[in-house]
């Protein structure tokens, strides 16, 4: 559906996006994830033909952004960050204006706008000036704007930024709903959001792709090493290090806290189920008292931090 190759963008001497390439399949919900200033917005702006790439190519359904800009714009719906709308227009007038520019037929226009308003929860504010709307409602107007032409590809830049938790859940539901039929590219710096809505995640940092995969596979990758926290009473630090360290599958043993008669130990071991069996069996064979035994879950959070903070 979308094919991006060696895409770069320079702002003066700053390289915002650096040689990124990826493909987006039809019907996919892709999350672009990265810290602030990683180049997410720039990438999306190039994808929507707002910015011209310094180098590299973008093809959408075999149309190139250099030659078929208008055709590509027709396929896409775009919600920029913080939904910059005309302040003094009334929501209804605004949507009518967008419908006209988007080429929605006059006969079906009103019905179409009504449907969209219902989907985005705008029915109650249709006759208010955009300026008077709360952030959440503005975001919804922006979403209605983006979906006006029933786009095949929906590009959403931080669609839930600045919303309250209830609104976030609602917007996510809307995205999920639309995502069943459409290709969606969204950017966010909130991991749980990417986890909750996306099929596939691309993590970018400093303009480069640092990870690319389905939500599951990224998590799987994170699970390669498991961190096991164990608390023991009546054990000696040295003994524990020796005995647990020699269990097959355990890679490292660190004593986190050593109070008299009480030990907190962190074990780094492989993800095999049997390793944990063996660790337990090892502890059971001694006269130590086991008071805690829990897995530290490595979430996307951890991968994200590892990938974006190194260097």
């Amino acid at each position: 559906m979308i094919h991006i190759e060696n895409l770069s963008k320079n702002y003066h001497d700053l390289r915002a996006v650096d040689q990124i390439s990826f493909d987006i399949k039809k019907g996919e919900i892709l999350g672009l994830l990265g810290p602030n200033g990683a180049g997410k917005t720039t990438t999306l702006r190039m994808l929507t033909c707002f910015l011209k790439p310094t180098s590299g190519s973008i093809r959408v359904k075999n149309l190139s952004i250099d030659n078929d800009e208008l055709a590509i714009k027709k396929l896409m719906g775009y919600l920029p960050e913080s939904a910059p709308l005309y302040k003094d227009m009334i929501v209804y007038d605004y949507l009518v204006y967008i419908a006209k520019i988007r080429g929605v037929e006059a006969e079906t226009r009103l019905a179409h706008i009504k449907d969209l308003a219902r989907l985005c929860g705008l029915t109650d504010v249709m006759h208010k000036p955009i300026d008077e709307l709360s952030k959440g409602y503005k975001q919804r107007v922006g979403l209605a704007h983006a979906m006006m032409n029933d786009p095949e590809i929906l590009v959403l830049d931080e669609p839930t930024s600045g919303l309250d938790p209830n609104q976030i859940v609602e917007i996510r539901e809307i995205i999920r709903k639309i995502g069943k039929e459409k290709t969606i590219v969204l950017s966010t710096h909130i991991l749980s959001e990417a986890e909750a809505t996306c099929d596939r995640i691309i993590i970018i940092n400093r303009g480069k792709i640092v990870a690319d995969g389905s939500t599951e596979s990224l998590k799987q990758e994170a699970r390669r090493d498991t961190i096991l926290n164990v608390s023991l009473e009546g054990a000696q630090a040295g003994d524990v290090e020796n005995k647990l360290g020699s269990v097959a599958g355990v890679e490292a043993v660190t004593i986190v806290d050593n109070r008299p008669g009480h030990l907190d130990v962190k074990l780094i071991c492989d993800a095999e189920h049997e390793t944990r069996h063996r660790i337990y069996a090892c502890i059971k064979a001694t006269d130590w008292l086991l008071t805690a035994f829990f897995l530290e879950t490595q979430t996307l959070e951890t991968i994200f931090r590892n990938l974006t903070q190194e260097k």
């Binding site: 929507t48 208008l70 920029p80 910059p84």
Partner: peptide
């Protein structure tokens, strides 16, 4: 100033 230019130009207009 508002940034609405971004919305305008990502619609099919030249």
């Amino acid at each position: 100033n508002v940034g609405s230019y971004e919305l305008l130009l990502t619609m099919p207009v030249t």
